[in-house]
Design a protein around this nucleic acid. Structure first.
Length: 141
RNA sequence: GCGGAGGGCCGGAUGGCCGCGGCACCUGCAAGGGUGACGAGGAAAGUCCGGACUCCACAAGACAACGGUGCCGGGUAACGCCCGGCUGGGGUAACCCAAGGGAAAGCGCCACAGAGAAGAGACCGCCCCCGAGUGAUCUGGGGUAAGGGUGAAACGGUGGGGUAAGAGCCCACCGCGGGACGGGCAACCGGACCGGCACGGCAAGCCCCACCGGGAGCAAUGCCAAAUAGGGACCGCGCGCGGGGGCAGGUCCUGGACCCAGGUCCGGGAUACCGCCCGCAGGCACGUCUUGGCCCGGCGGUCCGGGUUGGCAGCUAGAGGGGCGUUGGCAACAGCGUCCCAAGAGGAAUGGUCAUCCAGCCCCGGACCCCGGUUCGGGGGGGACAGAAUCCGGCUUACAGGCUCUCCGCGCCC
RNA sequence: GGCCCCGUGGCUCAACAGGAUAGAGCAGCCCCCUCCUAAGGGGCAGGUUACUGGUUCGAAUCCAGUCGGGGUCA
């Protein structure tokens, strides 16, 4: 049914998809999630930078791996489960946008949400704060 | 039109850009890449009940203890849930509320006040008799429980007769108790007739009666890997053979020192029993079997201590949910037919952001009308409660606002 | 995620098979004593018994439901 037509339709749509993906894959830094409690504790003992809307912790792993890893923390002080999840998701979206370009290879980052501000302030403010915090952490290293 | 009662449903919409999760398919040696559909709630919540499912314990079962349920009948896998009915209470009504079995099985409690608080009692009173006093009245004896007063509650109520004064002492009505008989599956309802009236309340105090319940919970449980210790206590079974090697350990005898106990340390002597190595027998686990692997003086079990805080399974199709039709039933619900839907994360996906619109809120201006609203235009600002964690059935609690159905009362018009 | 426990003055605790006024110590304020302070003595204030309902004549106590806090399990 579909197999005979599949090659012809794929051939028409493939070239644009490949061309748009090629430059995206040129960036070597891909980030993965931080999952182990020990990694969170290690990052907390390392460098940190607070801003009006969040707290950012960063740590150079020095293990030779260039991957950037990132974790998110929102305590009960942020609010109920809905508020905590929303704050975490906004932080996740920020990290996806800024970290591949502005984060340092081989580092672990932990973004910590603050009560009220992380879920309520404009997205541009959050973007500015994260960019500022990443510069400060890189400058001190 | 105004006011009210009971249900049911929804609880932002559309689009652009950038993303996430497991699944299916395609591609690739692999890492990976691509495509596709799907992806939070009515409460996902509280964890208050009931189950499914696992492990442990015990096993026909019964009893005791403990916990729960509690008008009657039905529904259900089950329930403390739901439906229908009964009784009592509230409301003009629609309708609502009720842990609603037993207080003549027994124990206990009923503070304060009051004379008296459970089969009680006489404070102020009322009445009679004897005596004192000119008299008001008083001492003593006796009869009463109507009236006053206390209390949440005072041992039937109202009226009449009766009496020295009174009293179910007698009568009428009401209440109460028993109750032939009739209706109903039952709770219960009606009730001829009988009884002069005793039987207070609390069982969300102990308790009695009937029925139900073994315990723990998916962080259950099973498996793999890694890592520390190469441990301690108790119980059961077994505590064999041969060879090699050695005099540094153990064991036995003995001397001394320390010393609360008991052991530690130093020294002398004896022994080949044990420790060490190899093999047999035996045991353990994997495997279809063979070969093989580990332990090899232990093996199995229970508990304690120590280490690890990784992965896989459990993990999502089940008493599943919903629509329509039909059959039975007042209904809850059940049967049959047919169609549709159905997430599986694991520091935890189901989104981030922007624009437009739709409700609701506030402000300004115009118009209309029995002065408070309706409608039109513009602007501001802004989304209720809330996020699956093994899965179902309920209950309870939170919730901006909106839609809709049925019913009741009052007013007006025809 | 499951299970268990607890909420009484500012703090630590009483009062509990229901009985009317919720009590004690420390802390606080005032007075006495002392040259001054501490200690000691006397007095005072401070409580919606976490909250909301229910049972009862009557609830800190009994029963439900909310809210908050703590512990424990791989």
């Amino acid at each position: 049914m579909t197999p005979p037509e599949a090659p012809s339709s794929d051939a028409g749509t493939m070239p644009p998809a490949v061309s748009s993906c090629a430059p995206h894959n040129a960036q070597p830094q891909k980030w993965t999630a931080l999952r182990k409690r020990a990694d969170f504790l290690a990052a907390a003992r390392a460098r940190r930078q607070g801003t009006g809307t969040m707290l950012v912790q960063g740590r150079d792993r020095r293990d030779g791996d260039a991957a950037i890893r990132v974790g998110f923390t929102c305590s009960k002080k942020v609010g109920n489960a809905v508020a905590r999840n929303r704050a975490k998701r906004r932080l996740r979206a920020l990290a996806r946008e800024l970290l591949p370009a502005q984060g340092l290879p081989g580092w672990d980052y932990v973004l910590i949400g603050k009560a009220e501000e992380t879920g309520a302030r404009p997205y541009d403010t959050l973007r500015h704060d994260l960019s500022y915090a990443l510069r400060k952490l890189a400058g001190g290293a």
